[in-house]
Amino acid sequence: MIRITGLDEMQRRLNDIQRRAENLSGSVSFDELFPPEFMREHTDFTEIGEFIEASGYEVNSTEDFKRIPDAEWDAHVAARTTFRSWEEMQRQAGQEYVARRLGL
């Protein structure tokens, strides 16, 4: 007879991940999406605010950020991060955010 152990613990872990996944809806701030660990690993900066400030654009609101020309922002991202574009940077940050929230 083969005895399998640890199934209860695995079930508890899966239930915890499911509960966390159900709480992932809603908006996420830049500080949550781009924490210092992410910024240190992938950019020349330790905070997203420093990264934005270094772009030379004054950003005090979402509207200010949306007015930055895409090509110029992508050039800033490519020059100061490990990413080729803002889309790529956001995608990686999103994946890491979800993994953190799920406890993976």
Score class of each variant (00 low, 15 high):
Ile68Leu: 07
Asn15Gln: 15
Phe65Ser: 07
Asp8Met: 09
Lys66Gln: 15
Asp44Arg: 14
Tyr97Val: 08
Thr46Lys: 06
Gly49Val: 09
Ser29Met: 05
Asp16Leu: 14
Arg20Glu: 14
Asn15Trp: 12
Glu72Asp: 14
Glu96Ala: 07
Glu41Gln: 15
Arg101Cys: 15
Glu96Lys: 01
Asp70Glu: 14
Leu24Pro: 01
Asn23Trp: 04
Phe65Leu: 14
Leu7Val: 13
Leu104Trp: 11
Val28Tyr: 08
Glu58Arg: 10
Ala75His: 03
Val98Gln: 04
Phe51Leu: 09
Trp86Gly: 13
Ala71Ser: 10
Gly6Phe: 06
Lys66Leu: 11
His42Thr: 02
Arg40Gln: 10
Ile68Trp: 03
Ser55Asn: 04
Val59Cys: 08
Arg101Thr: 11
His76Ala: 13
Asp16Ile: 05
Leu33Pro: 00
Gly6Glu: 03
Ser25Tyr: 14
Met89Glu: 05
Ile4Cys: 03
Arg12Glu: 13
Arg12Leu: 10
Asn15Leu: 15
Ile17His: 09
Glu50Asn: 07
Gln92Trp: 00
Asp70Gly: 06
Pro69Gln: 08
Ile17Gly: 01
Glu22Pro: 00
Arg67Cys: 05
Lys66Gly: 04
Glu58Trp: 05
Ile68Asn: 04
Val59Pro: 00
Ala71Asn: 03
Thr43Cys: 04
Glu88Ala: 11
Thr82Cys: 03
Glu47Asp: 11
Ala21Lys: 04
Asp16Asn: 08
Val59Trp: 06
Tyr97Gly: 04
Tyr57Ile: 05
Trp86His: 10
Gly49Ile: 13
Ser29Gln: 08
Gly6Asp: 06
Gly94Ala: 11
Gly26Ser: 10
Glu53Cys: 01
Val28Ala: 03
Arg19Ser: 14
Pro36Asn: 09
Gly26Ala: 13
Glu50Pro: 00
Gly94Tyr: 07
His76Leu: 12
